[in-house]
Design a protein around this nucleic acid. Structure first.
Length: 104
DNA sequence: CGTCTGACGATAT
DNA sequence: TATATCGCCAGAC
């Protein structure tokens, strides 16, 4: 069985530790798909509860909007429960919270 | 099997 | 600084 694109993406997302976030672009790059941030978004859309999808935010440090408007406050609450703070404008400070993997 | 659709971001103009 | 272009996966129908 060849590993699918989505599986590679999800494998990376599962490495993001609690209390940290990664961007779509970062995830896709680590999975071997540089400059294809959409692939990370596509994969997360189909992700189940075995993957910490809430730890992926966009390059601006904001939660990416989806069909369900309630998904934003919902994701935010989970991240805050993990210790991540949001600015008054709803932005995560990537300088402070972005995941920096050691190797691979 | 063709078309549509959905968690993005670097680059060009 | 703002808007357009492009890359190109996978499930639903």
């Amino acid at each position: 069985m060849a590993e699918s694109t989505h599986e590679k993406i999800l494998r990376v997302v599962r490495r993001i530790p609690r209390g940290r976030v990664a961007t779509y672009g970062q995830v896709s790059k680590l999975a071997g798909f540089a400059r294809q941030p959409r692939l990370a978004g596509y994969a997360l859309r189909h992700a189940d509860d075995t993957v910490p999808w809430q730890r992926v935010v966009n390059a601006a440090g904001r939660i990416s909007p989806r069909a369900d408007p309630d998904s934003i406050p919902r994701q935010r609450l989970i991240l805050e429960a993990e210790g991540i703070q949001f600015s008054a404008t709803g932005v995560v400070d990537l300088k402070r919270y972005q995941w920096r993997p050691r190797r691979r």
